[in-house]
Design a protein around this nucleic acid. Structure first.
Lengths: 210, 210
DNA sequence: CTGTGATTCAATCGTTTGATGGAAGTGTAG
DNA sequence: CTACACTTCCATCAAACGATTGAATCACAG
């Protein structure tokens, strides 16, 4: 059986896929309550009821978006893991930061939506959060901080969260932070990478068993 | 002339102050669009029109909340600066992390609202953002990363942002992160401090001029 | 008590929002 | 062509939202 989301992804030109792409961007910008179904429909160029026909309702569409976002991010992290496999920790971190940052600057709605889920709440009765597998454990193992995916110590999980969040912050907060440092987009991206490496590499290199 | 906000703060039992306190919390939890004026009024135990009488409208109330939040945080950071003055950088960072984290865990709506402003957008025509003085420059100077408040280099601003954001993240994301590490609140707070020090102290200590 | 200004509330307005029903359009198999 | 499933849109609904009005209530000076 194929889920509606998989079906939508099979044909990127299908109406389902077009709606999903727009919904990703707008939900990411304005959050769940800040987004109206009419905003999405207008951006796609269709009627509201067409949106309802394909995705059922606002909550259903939002949950599909969240699942889709997480699927994309997981795949990207999996790609990164293959590139850095076997390298020393410092290099692994540096390359991971470069690749992940580049990817997220191209898809800022991913960071936006993840941060919205972390820090915001919704006033919906039902559990709006779709069941999304967390993959901090994968990152921890990929960074050599944990042997297996089970029983990752809390300290390690927290460290992984700190790294991932600091990346998402600079991506998602660009519209706020970039005017503060008064640089163009290209320079901002370079600054982000530089800062992330400055902050995180020394921390994990301090007890590196080279 | 006293602003409405100052007037409200003079008498903490006044209706203006009671509304402001509740609005801080609810706006922080649900964001601007996720919060309804009725939610705030019901929490305070008053009628909606009473809220409008005191604060004019939803946007005005939200802007007052943002200004109030930033004023509180600035004052707290000023207190912290006095404590750490003259100490070596590593100690300054450690103490700053401890004090700031404790304060924000007691007032999580501060972190919530700041992150909402960083990462979220509103679909209001007018510039919803009240003019809030940013104080990353003060922090930079207080940390010894900049000589004066003017002309702080972009690299320094980015580093300060990274530190502040990582703190806000763990405060505001507690409801999401704490179940991931499966610890009680007290242990979570300790973990946050520990992680923040692990991440940030080595970074700034690497080129410390002892 | 009376008058006056400040405060609070009940009732309601106009708009927006999420959602739906039914008509019209499109493509395909028989 | 017909029949039928699949899409899309127009018109519309009920509920929720922000906001306003006018009356009731309170505090208090004269």
């Amino acid at each position: 059986m194929t889920t509606p989301l998989e079906k939508a992804r099979q044909d990127p030109e299908s109406m389902k896929a077009r709606i999903l792409d727009v919904a990703r961007r707008i939900f990411g910008e304005y959050g769940f309550h800040g987004t109206t179904t009419r905003m999405i429909a207008q951006e796609v160029g269709i009627d509201i009821s067409t949106l309802h026909y394909h995705w059922g309702g606002k909550k259903d569409l939002y949950e599909s978006v969240v699942v889709d976002i997480n699927k994309d991010l997981r795949q990207k992290l999996s790609e990164v893991e293959k590139v850095i496999h076997g390298l020393p920790l410092s290099e692994r971190l540096a390359i991971s930061i470069d690749l992940t940052t580049d990817y997220l600057f191209d898809h800022p709605e991913v960071s936006n939506l993840i941060l919205y889920r972390y820090f915001g709440k919704t006033r919906c009765e039902g559990n709006l959060d779709a069941i999304v597998p967390e993959f901090t454990a994968d990152i921890a193992r990929s960074m050599g901080l944990a042997r297996d995916k089970k029983n990752v110590p809390p300290e390690t999980t927290m460290k992984v969260l700190a790294v991932m969040n600091s990346i998402h912050n600079f991506i998602s907060g660009e519209s706020f932070f970039r005017p503060m440092v008064k640089v163009d987009r290209e320079r901002y991206i370079a600054l982000v990478k530089e800062t992330l490496k400055f902050i995180h590499i020394p921390a994990f290199a301090q007890n590196e068993t080279t």
